[in-house]
Computed example of a mutant assay.
Amino acid sequence: MSVSGTAGVEGLPAEQQPPEDPLRAWRGLADTSVLLDGFHALKHALRFGARIPVALTSDKAAVLALAADLAPDVAAALDALLAETDDATLRALVPRLHPTAVAALAVRPSRTANLQVLAHTPRPAPVVVLDDPRNLGNAGAVIRLAAGFGATGVVTTGTLDPWHPTVVRGGAGLHFATAVERVDVAELPAGPVFALDAEGEDIRGLKLPDDAVLAFGSERSGLSSELRARADHLVSLPMRPQVSSYNLATSVGMTLFHWSSGRPPGAQV
């Protein structure tokens, strides 16, 4: 077993300097850190300012070639951060290793800081609420969508941890591009609540404000009674008769697109 790392990399802040013993650092941090599984998760985390104490790969040259092709803006940071180890060692640390053979550990953003972002008004973009979601992959896909649209944040109610490794994998590292937290319904951010419901008003006749709180029920049981009681508006998506429902991420994507279509072309969040 061998590991090659680099210490004291010029231009990196102290907290981002690669550790002298990457494997020891990984084992000490794994239980309290966010696992970034794969090239795209690490790429996005770097772009959006995540603190990454350690990053490992079994093929550094291949990862840097991928960065040169797909993400040259983070190539230098990857070159500095990545430590190379053998494939068996990496798979022992990350049993479900991504095909790009790279993984990293990141510091989870402060809950206090995220809640401050969610509570700040006026907001330039909506907050997405997943009411008691059950599917980890769906939650990750929603966070990826929300980050892409520039949503202020994604909050979940219920028991699902939005920072679960499977959710982070589905979100491709974009948890660091928006505020992601779990809250109770009573703690939802301020703003008019537009809850998606098949019996609601057709969304095509509405303009969603920037400070909207967009709520989506669970994949199986829909909106909870508590969330429904909190809603200011029930809203429906256009759907062909006899079709039961859309996938959760699809519903979020359609709703955020409707919100964004009311903004001038090129508007930035």
Results as ranks from 00 to 15, higher is better:
S2K: 07
S4F: 11
T6H: 13
A7G: 05
G8C: 07
E10A: 15
G11E: 00
L12G: 01
A14Q: 00
E20K: 12
D21V: 14
D21Q: 11
P22W: 03
W26H: 01
R27H: 08
R27Y: 02
L29G: 01
D31L: 04
T32Q: 09
L36F: 05
F39H: 07
F39A: 15
H40I: 15
H40T: 13
H40F: 15
A41H: 05
R51A: 15
R51M: 04
I52C: 04
P53L: 01
L56N: 02
T57H: 07
S58H: 10
S58A: 15
S58T: 11
S58Y: 12
D59F: 08
A61D: 08
A65S: 13
L66N: 03
A68G: 14
A68Q: 10
D73S: 13
D73V: 14
A76D: 09
A77Y: 02
L81G: 04
E84I: 13
E84A: 13
E84W: 10
T85L: 10
D87S: 14
A92R: 12
L93E: 03
H98V: 14
H98K: 07
T100H: 10
A101I: 03
A101Q: 12
A101D: 05
A101N: 11
L105S: 07
A106W: 11
P109Y: 15
S110R: 06
R111K: 08
T112C: 01
T112L: 12
A113G: 02
L118N: 02
T121E: 11
P124N: 04
P124Q: 09
A125Q: 00
P126G: 09
V128E: 00
L130G: 05
L130W: 05
D132I: 06
N138L: 04
V142T: 03
V142C: 04
I143D: 03
I143H: 07
G148D: 03
T156P: 00
T157H: 05
L160V: 05
D161A: 07
P162I: 06
P162W: 14
H164A: 06
P165D: 03
G170L: 02
L174K: 03
L174F: 06
A177Q: 05
A177G: 13
T178L: 02
V180Q: 00
V180M: 04
E181F: 02
V185R: 02
V185Q: 01
A186F: 01
A186D: 09
L188C: 08
V193E: 00
V193T: 11
A195F: 14
D197W: 04
G200K: 10
G200Y: 12
G200C: 11
E201P: 00
E201Q: 13
D202C: 12
R204K: 09
L206Y: 09
K207I: 15
D210Q: 10
D211E: 12
L214P: 03
G217Y: 14
S218M: 11
L223D: 06
E226T: 15
D232P: 09
S236L: 11
L237M: 06
P238Q: 07
V252T: 06
M254S: 07
L256H: 06
H258G: 06
H258C: 11
W259K: 09
Q268Y: 09
